[in-house]
């Protein structure tokens, strides 16, 4: 039982980091990234490709942490010209292009077959690293949220023109956010690779992006602690339904499908009845310099 709990906590911590990353992008800055899985996949694949190429483990990790923000800067560029719903489709496409490349070009990272990563055998170490990463991500998220940067991001989110009239360049802020959050998501992806020990295209689907979105919407966009709890609820829901399936005696495929139905329902009901999430962002009235 104990190692199952440790494993579940590790997975929760990893997806919480993803939720914080998306929260800074969407909750604070208003960036609608439907390709949130992309930096995660880049991080994981950097490690996998690094192992295939025989470079030292730290070099693979470094490559992931550098590559993801660079790709992010490329993806954010069209946000200068296109409104957020168009940009969302661009990010969705970017994530899929990466996945389809990995799937269809086996010489890069094994195609559909994927690549093996030497797994972190020690469960406690894996949990320690995941929680450590979560704490760092949370502190970064809080620092951004509480600091002058966070206040400026919220101004951009609410009124881009106002931000510009204040003499700030919204695009420069968005690029900063992208660099930080994509590196964060890449770190989660790297750890994911080492925890599951296997990298294949099926781990990086559009549906995974929406899992993170559900966590953020559930917890409350804008609040870091909220989205962490949101991610925790989702993973616990997913894990606990496995036990319910067994106890209920219903056919396992029926329960598996009903579990996904609950996810959809949670997303819709939150939007309808509690759009601010379980843990709403507290609105502050201040001027842009924090006085």
């Amino acid at each position: 039982m104990i190692s199952f709990a440790i494993y579940a906590l590790t997975i929760i911590a990893i997806w919480s980091v993803m939720a914080i990353s998306l929260n800074i992008q969407f909750g604070m800055t208003g960036l609608v990234n439907f390709g949130q899985i992309l930096p995660f996949a880049i991080g994981a694949y950097a490690v996998g490709i690094g192992i295939e190429a025989g470079i030292p483990w730290w070099a693979g990790i470094l490559a992931g942490l550098v590559a993801a923000p660079l790709v992010g800067l490329l993806v954010i560029l069209p946000a200068r010209r296109q409104s957020q719903d168009y940009w969302a489709l661009i990010t969705l496409g970017a994530g899929e292009l990466f996945r389809l490349t990995m799937l269809n070009v086996p010489s890069i990272a094994g195609g559909a077959d994927g690549v093996t990563i030497s797994r972190l055998g020690d469960r406690n170490l894996a949990l320690g690293l995941a929680v450590g990463l979560l704490v760092v991500a949370y502190l970064v998220g809080q620092r951004i949220s509480r600091g002058p940067l966070g206040r400026m991001l919220r101004v951009i989110r609410e009124d881009e023109v106002l931000a510009a009239t204040l003499g700030r360049n919204p695009m420069a802020y968005r690029m900063k956010v992208t660099v930080v959050t994509w590196a964060m998501a890449a770190a989660a992806g790297i750890l994911f690779g080492y925890v599951v020990g296997y990298i294949a295209p099926t781990s990086f689907l559009v549906t995974d992006t929406f899992l993170v979105w559900t966590a953020v919407i559930l917890g409350g966009p804008g609040r870091n602690i909220g989205v962490v709890i949101g991610a925790a609820i989702l993973i616990l829901l997913s894990v606990s339904t496995r036990f319910m399936a067994e106890w209920s005696g219903l056919p396992s495929d029926l329960v598996a499908n009903l579990r996904l139905a609950v996810f959809g329902l949670v997303l819709v009901l939150m939007f309808l009845f509690r759009p601010q999430g379980l843990f709403p962002e507290t609105r502050e009235v201040r001027d842009v310099d924090g006085r």
């Binding site: 719903d85 549906t207 929406f210 329902l265 949670v266 997303l267 819709v268």
Partner: peptide, 11 residues
């Protein structure tokens, strides 16, 4: 768009 994703998942 996000809500419609939830609806699609449910259906």
């Amino acid at each position: 768009m996000i809500v419609s994703w939830g609806v699609a998942l449910f259906i």
